[in-house]
Design a protein around this nucleic acid. Structure first.
Lengths: 193, 193
DNA sequence: GGCAAAACGGAACGATGTTCCGTATCGTCG
DNA sequence: CGACGATACGGAACATCGTTCCGTTTTGCC
């Protein structure tokens, strides 16, 4: 698990660099919680006790920083897919539960969903989420389709983007329940709906 | 039709002010088409041949400008609701078609959907859309529920926001079909789904 | 201890939204 | 018709952000 790390960055030889990177991650995580993922760069830098240049050196784009902060949780969500499929009573139920997990994750992260767009200037972020989750979603979708529980003509990518979109602005609006709407969307997948 | 205009702004006594306001609306409409509703203020001002101060005088917030530009179309959408209900074969079909109309409108307006959020800093915009469309949506929903076609526990507000969210970033992504997802969402409303 | 490489910090730049006020224009009234 | 007060205008000035750049500091190693 949590292997290759794609680029396989060799981890800096200098301890100050390693420390700063760790501080940055902590600071970013803390700031994201209260200000959202759009928090000013200077804010994060100040919180970590470093200059803005240091942020850009460790995380060239904001997407890199966001991915680094949430990588574990995204991976956990991805890994939950197959498990739910094995445990649950059926593929459609597994899909429902998995989508719920994903929605919960997104909704609790201020502004994250809004920044998942392909053209929001956070391509790395978009790509990471999709690379990680689309295959899992496809697996659940295929299983449900094979079981004859849902129509087969829905792309995993489209569903993921739809659910992601439904989560935008879900916090800070008591009258809007993203979980509910996502469930409705999944329900709409059923045959003959 | 197109009566009261709520605030009943008395229309400026000076013709230069009226002309500038009209130019601004034209310029904004033109710029929105190619740059989206987030286009730089200076751009719109330049296109209209006025200074930025003039924009702020006529349209204190960007939301006011956007509302002014799209008011007609929003009204047209609102008015289509009752008509579809009367014409169509049934309430649920009318709802489907009406949602389609709304989605078409949003999708063709660069970035409009993204800015419909309650906390996006465009409260006037959010309020206008909702004031105008939520009642219509509620009417369609009630009719469908009365006809026993859908579950009755969905708020018009939530549905409108959900559909609006689904439209975010729908242009500029061939793999994402907002119309389709919105239809799926509406399908999910059906009983026993 | 000294040196080169690596990393740092924050000033500086560019893009935007927003405000403010001296100036220009308009409508009216004598 | 000419002046005068009200209205509206324009754009410089300010504030906020992201991003870049380079002189300075720190680190690891010889």
């Amino acid at each position: 698990m949590h292997d290759g790390d794609q680029g396989a960055e060799p981890v800096s030889r200098r301890k100050d660099a390693r420390r700063n990177k760790a501080n940055l991650l902590d600071a970013a995580a803390a700031v994201f919680v209260v200000q959202g993922v759009d928090a000013p760069v200077r804010e994060i830098a100040a919180r970590a006790g470093v200059g803005v240049g240091t942020i850009y050196r460790h995380f060239p784009t904001r997407a890199d920083l966001i991915v680094a902060v949430y990588r574990h949780q995204v991976d956990a969500c991805a890994e939950a897919g197959p498990r739910l499929l094995a445990e649950g009573p059926g593929p459609h139920t597994a899909l429902e539960r998995w989508i719920d997990l994903f929605v919960d994750f997104l909704v609790t992260k201020h502004g994250l969903a809004a920044v998942l767009q392909p053209d929001a200037g956070f391509d790395t972020l978009h790509a990471y989420f999709l690379d990680r989750l689309v295959p899992v979603c496809g697996q659940l979708l295929d299983a449900a389709a094979d079981a004859g529980e849902i129509r087969a003509d829905i792309e995993p990518y489209a569903l993921m983007r739809g659910v992601g979109n439904l989560c935008i602005g879900a916090d800070s609006d008591a009258r809007y329940d993203a979980r509910r709407l996502a469930a409705l969307l999944v329900a709409g997948l059923r045959h003959g709906a």
